[in-house]
C-alpha cells in the first residue's frame, strides 16, 4: 500500500516465568497507518505491546525497528527509540500528586530545553485536543474515569510522538466520547502522519479506525488484514470473535470443577 514497515515483528515468542504466552507472532506495522490489535481477554495483546515498547525483554531477531534489531538495542539505542514513542497504558496512570497540566509537562521538562511558557501552551494545545482545556489545573483524582483516560492520552502526545501505542483507549468511555477519540486518532494519523497501534475490545471502534487489523487468539495471530479482509474471513474463530459468541467450548469445565471441589472430583473417579 505504499507504506514501509516501520516495525517488523518476525517470530516473537514470550514467556512469563517459563509459561509461554506468545507464539511465533509475525506481522508488520506500516508507518503512518493505524494498526488495531484485537482479541479476547488474556490472549496476549498487552504483552505484545510491552515487547514493542521495550518494556519486556525481547530476544534478538524477533522485532525489527527501521531494520534494526530491537532485541540487540543497547541502553542508548533503547532510550532513543523510546523517545519516539507515546504510550497510553491500559491503566492510564497519571501522577496523582500533580495537576493534569503538570502531568503533560513532565516529559517535555525532562527531555527538552523548551521554556516553561512554551511548555504551558503545548500542554494546553494537547488538552484542548482531548476536550480538556478547562481541566488543566485539576488533580487526576478530580476527574472522571473517561477524563483521566483522555488526560493520559494528552500526556502520551506531549512529545509529538512519531509512534503512538494505546491500550484500550475507549474502555470506560461513553459512546460519544469514544467516537470522538476515534476521530482524534484518525486526525493524528492524517495530520501528524503518526504511526498508531491501538489495542481494543471495541469492534465498532476497531473497524472505524483500522488500516490494518490483527486478531489474536491464545497467544497466536488468528488473522491479519484490512478491515474488509477481516470481515470476509471464513475462519471460524474469527467469525466467532466478530459475532461476539460466548466461547463455551473453551472453558475447561473439568478443571474448574476439580478446583472448586478440592479433590472430591478425583475421588469420584472423574
Amino acid at each position: 500500500m505504499g507504506h514501509r514497515d516501520l516495525i517488523d515483528v518476525c517470530g516473537l515468542n514470550s514467556h512469563y516465568s517459563g509459561r509461554q504466552v506468545l507464539f511465533d507472532i509475525r506481522f508488520g506495522i506500516p508507518d503512518t497507518n493505524i494498526t488495531v490489535i484485537m482479541g479476547v481477554s488474556g490472549c496476549g495483546k498487552t504483552t505484545l505491546l510491552r515487547h514493542l515498547i521495550g518494556l519486556k525483554r525481547t530476544r534478538p531477531e524477533q522485532i525489527m525497528v527501521d531494520g534494526q534489531d530491537l532485541g540487540k538495542f543497547n541502553e542508548e539505542e533503547m532510550r532513543n527509540y523510546r523517545r519516539r514513542l507515546g504510550v497510553l497504558f491500559q491503566s492510564g496512570a497519571l501522577f496523582n500528586s500533580m495537576t493534569v497540566s503538570q502531568n503533560i509537562a513532565v516529559p517535555l521538562k525532562v527531555h527538552t530545553r523548551l521554556s516553561d511558557e512554551t511548555i504551558r501552551i503545548m500542554a494546553l494545545i494537547k488538552l484542548n485536543l482531548l476536550g480538556l482545556a478547562e481541566f488543566g489545573a485539576f488533580m487526576p483524582s478530580q476527574l472522571s474515569g473517561g477524563m483521566r483516560k483522555r488526560a493520559g492520552l494528552a500526556r502520551a502526545l506531549a512529545m509529538d510522538p512519531e509512534i503512538l501505542f494505546v491500550d484500550e483507549p475507549s474502555s470506560g468511555l461513553d459512546p460519544i466520547t469514544a467516537a470522538g477519540l476515534d476521530r482524534l486518532i484518525l486526525e493524528l494519523r492524517d495530520t501528524l502522519g503518526m504511526t498508531i497501534i491501538v489495542v481494543t475490545h471495541e469492534l465498532e471502534s476497531a473497524f472505524r479506525i483500522a488500516d490494518r487489523l490483527i486478531v489474536m487468539d491464545r497467544g497466536c495471530i488468528l488473522a491479519a488484514g484490512s478491515p474488509d479482509e477481516i470481515r470476509a474471513s471464513q475462519n471460524e474463530r474469527v467469525l466467532q470473535f466478530l459475532e461476539r459468541k460466548a466461547d463455551t467450548a473453551e472453558i475447561n469445565t473439568a478443571g474448574y470443577l476439580s478446583r472448586i471441589m478440592g479433590n472430591e472430583i478425583t475421588r469420584s473417579g472423574r
Binding site: T112, L114, E117, T118, I119, I121, M122, I125, K126, D160
Partner: peptide, 11 residues
C-alpha cells in the same frame, strides 16, 4: 513543524 513550533508562534 511540531507543537512546540506552534506554541512559539502563539507566544
Amino acid at each position: 513543524l511540531d507543537t512546540s513550533g506552534v506554541a512559539m508562534l502563539v507566544e
